[in-house]
Design a protein around this nucleic acid. Structure first.
Lengths: 126, 126
DNA sequence: ATCCGATATGCATCATTAAACATATTGCAA
DNA sequence: TTGCAATATGTTTAATGATGCATATCGGAT
């Protein structure tokens, strides 16, 4: 929260983004793609995951593929064909990544809380 | 740093961005615009600052204006005309903001260090 | 009064990214 | 062996944002 009403920065907020990238700054996985992985895990289907997150299948598929190419290993075990058309499930690596990220996020939130408070306290004093 | 060579995530890095935004997610000030403010402070000129940062005057001017409109107060005291064409200098609010941001950034770096180390330690174990 | 260089701003264009469209492939079950 | 639904992928169009271009304004110094 920015501060108490009346503060100069009352309706200003501090935001942050975290993501994994290559050394030269190419994005690999961010919040959006991790959410996609989580949804694949939940539904067992890339298409269902894309639908649930309101993004096109084309985009979802491309995102996963790009991340896998950057990482050099597979995040989603995909099979096609069959009565149900196919299915997808996360690899162990992907699950491990998700759980590590969740922990990271929590740690982060916790750490940023005080820092943010201190920041707004300082700028609102001007 | 991602970890020791041989690790699965050896050439993967965790990045972050911090910025000020409105409640509904409209960006106000990020690293780039703060750098612009710093350069204005250093040079006393919006044009010189833009040149030094290799961005167009048009863009620099628009960025400052947008930030000021979002914040509801002035960051740069601008005057035009005169032999030298004009000049610009930061308001006290802008200076305060810059110094608070520097402190925030330092705090942030410090906090993220351990968190990042822990994250890579965990995912590299898979 | 005129000149100069920076501030001020609208408008066209270009580039980068995201969304949409189209089409092929796969393999189980009926 | 055919139909179906999801995976797989190229192409293309739309949208967003950055860049460049043009032009006006201002006021101290000459």
């Amino acid at each position: 929260m920015a501060g108490s009403q009346g503060d100069k920065y009352y309706d200003v907020f501090l935001r942050y983004r975290l993501w994994l990238s290559t050394k030269d700054g190419i994005g690999i996985l961010g919040e959006g793609r991790l959410a996609l992985l989580r949804e694949i895990d939940k539904t067992g289907s890339l298409k269902a995951a894309a639908d649930n997150l309101n993004i096109s299948y084309r985009k979802a598929w491309g995102n996963i593929k790009h991340a896998e190419e950057m990482l050099g290993f597979i995040l989603v075990e995909k099979q096609r064909g069959g009565k149900l058309g196919g299915k997808s499930q996360l690899t162990d690596e992907a699950r491990n990544l998700l759980s590590a990220y969740d922990e990271l996020k929590d740690d982060f939130e916790l750490a940023i809380k005080d820092i943010t408070r201190k920041f707004f306290k300082k700028i609102n004093k001007t």
